[in-house]
């Protein structure tokens, strides 16, 4: 991968997702439903338009999402 390609990838991360996305409040409102959909193998991103884009653009919400996934995994194993 060339440095130019890496620079463009970095730029894309800085500029965020190109599609419509949820706000942080909207993301929090559906977080539990989206995570359960992901874990049950349903089409989570189709059911919650704008969620995936928001998780790409907002590291804090992405971290909360990952935390809930991991906690439910942990509970299933316990």
């Amino acid at each position: 991968m060339s440095e130019q390609h890496r620079a463009r990838q970095r730029l894309e991360r800085l500029l965020g997702p190109t599609g419509p996305e949820l706000s942080c409040d909207e993301c929090f409102a559906v977080l539990d439903r989206h995570v359960e959909a992901v874990l049950s193998g349903r089409q989570a991103d189709e059911a919650f338009p704008g969620m995936r884009e928001h998780l790409i653009g907002c590291p804090a919400c992405a971290e909360d999402h990952a935390s809930l996934v991991e906690l439910l995994h942990h509970e299933e194993r316990a």
């Binding site: 929090f28 539990d32 359960e36 909360d64 935390s67 809930l68 439910l72």
Partner: peptide, 26 residues
């Protein structure tokens, strides 16, 4: 009253604790 049963209650409640812990740690 915001909880409508579209997920398990515990999953819905967990997100408040996870958000709070994450904010505090950051």
């Amino acid at each position: 009253d915001d909880f409508r049963g579209e997920s398990r209650f515990t999953t819905w409640a967990y997100k408040f604790a996870l958000l709070g812990a994450g904010v505090r740690l950051r």
